[in-house]
């Protein structure tokens, strides 16, 4: 057990707990950007810095284990100024097309900018202008929106062991992409979608074909059927504010029929068939 204080509040935590985790236990919110609870810290963004009494350095809360007797300060004008400057720098390297972005209103960078009350741009914009990769039927990669948090790489390489995505180059011109000049469709990508679901911004986003579906549904010459993956029956509830785990099967079928699909299939049907065999 380690005893320390955060903003004067005593904390008792297990050895190896990070400053960020310890702070959350005592309801102290440290802003983060690259951090994701599923993943080991990449320590990339520098937003979560805090002060430790007795040192004039600032430490990253996401990856620094709390030590016995540490006296941590998470907010003061200097810390906030540094965080804000870092955020301004990140924003200067990010396009301003929130309204047209798939991640609008669910973007972690956007939320952070709002939380810091960013109203104007302090630094000139530098956007790399690397072309989008829309070679697959699953996602669009937009390198301009990447904040180099490293989550997609961590997921793709370490957790999924797919190694489709990689960090290429160095410094300001570093970027994430498949190796050897390949497009995503030529890479080992299996379209698992983990990169997209962990991306904090719109740099990797599911290919949106809503308009095409609407068009097909309205075409009287088409007989439209729909098939859903098993996990969607439960997962979709969260998007509508239901408690996690709510079974939505009935509602989902009803909605799909009302949208105009003539028949609704569930992928689990094939599983049932296999069992009957």
């Amino acid at each position: 057990m380690i005893i320390a204080t955060i903003n004067g509040i005593p904390v008792h935590v297990a050895e190896g707990t990070t400053i960020l985790e310890a702070a959350r236990q005592v309801q102290v919110k440290i802003p983060t950007l690259c951090h994701h609870p599923d993943l080991p810290p990449t320590a990339a963004c520098g937003i979560c810095i805090v002060k430790v009494q007795g040192s004039n350095k600032m430490l990253r809360a996401c990856c620094t284990p709390i030590e016995e007797g540490m006296n941590i300060l998470t907010h003061d004008p200097e810390i906030v100024e540094v965080r804000r400057t870092v955020l301004e720098l990140i924003l200067s390297n990010h396009p301003n097309d929130c309204l047209k972005c798939g991640r609008n209103q669910s973007c972690e960078l956007q939320n952070l900018a709002a939380a810091f009350g960013i109203r104007e741009e302090l630094f000139p914009k530098f956007i790399s202008g690397i072309p989008k990769d829309d070679s697959t039927n699953a996602f669009v990669i937009d390198p301009d929106k990447c904040i180099h948090c490293g989550r997609c790489i961590e997921i793709c390489q370490e957790l999924q062991q797919v190694w489709a995505l990689s960090f290429l180059g160095r410094g300001f011109s570093s970027r994430f992409a498949p190796a050897a000049g390949m497009r995503l469709v030529e890479s080992p990508c299996v379209e698992c979608g983990q990169c997209s679901s962990h991306c904090p911004t719109g740099a990797i986003f599911e290919l949106d074909e809503t308009v095409k579906v609407w068009q097909k549904l309205q075409d009287p010459d088409n007989y439209c059927v729909v098939q859903i993956a098993p996990s969607v029956r439960v997962a979709i509830g969260e998007a509508f504010g239901m408690p996690p785990g709510t079974n939505m099967t009935g509602k989902l079928y009803t909605v799909l029929r009302r949208l105009g699909f003539k028949a609704v299939f569930d992928t689990s049907f094939a599983a049932d068939v296999t069992v009957m065999e």
Partner: peptide
């Protein structure tokens, strides 16, 4: 430093570039 920055963390990667500009 801009040429040699590894590009991993935002303050160094973007900060150096902005300062140079």
């Amino acid at each position: 430093c801009v040429d040699e920055s590894c590009g991993k963390c935002a303050p160094c990667r973007i900060g150096g570039y902005q300062m140079l500009n």
